[in-house]
Nucleic acid binder design. Structure first.
Length: 170
DNA sequence: GCCAACGTTGGC
DNA sequence: GCCAACGTTGGC
């Protein structure tokens, strides 16, 4: 009845399987801001679906495509990674904050934040337009009509394709 | 600046 | 629980 558990030992480094796309308006927080600061707490999220991704799904090491929305042109402009674990979003407790939410209590927070760390800027942004015309990005949530989720799961092939496109252009 | 699409709120 | 009104997102 003994089992050889050595075959199941966890590798020294656990491979991350998570890939995401974070939208940000460059006038509010740009990839340049993240590059300069190195890391930032991604707070202010007030959408339940995005909240669930932060609170329940993200893992340290997950990789993030950083997307400039409401930009000219709208494009993926960099890569980041998730670090740390979800934490209560303190801005929801702050009456003076635009994201103040009286129904979020410190003993049972409604909203959560997570820290991300800068990895790289893309030499060439991967524009929304170029993704629409490239079959490698078919099915990407970002391209779906009417979708406006600011934190989206991304499949690995779409993540890789974004890096390929950015690399091949420079 | 326009406006379609979407999420949330609140009266009933 | 319905749904109209409202606010927001984000491409164009």
């Amino acid at each position: 009845m003994t089992r050889d558990i050595r075959a199941e030992e966890t590798p020294a480094r656990i491979e991350s399987t998570g890939f995401w796309l974070f939208k940000s308006e460059p006038g509010t927080y740009s990839i340049e801001d993240l590059a300069r600061e190195g890391r930032t707490l991604w707070d202010g999220i007030r959408n339940y679906q995005a909240r669930n991704f932060i609170r329940d799904t993200m893992r340290p090491g997950d990789r993030v495509l950083f997307y400039h929305s409401n930009a000219d042109p709208p494009a993926i402009v960099g890569v980041a990674r998730i670090i740390g674990s979800p934490v209560p979003d303190m801005t929801a407790f702050d009456r003076s904050n635009h994201g103040y939410d009286p129904k979020s209590r410190s003993e049972n927070p409604t909203w959560f934040a997570i820290e991300i760390e800068f990895q790289s800027r893309l030499g060439d942004p991967v524009t929304l337009e170029s993704m629409r015309s490239d079959p490698r990005f078919r099915g990407m949530l970002l391209l779906a009509k009417g979708q406006r989720l600011s934190i989206q799961p991304v499949i690995e092939s779409h993540f890789r394709s974004a890096l390929e496109v950015a690399r091949h252009r420079d």
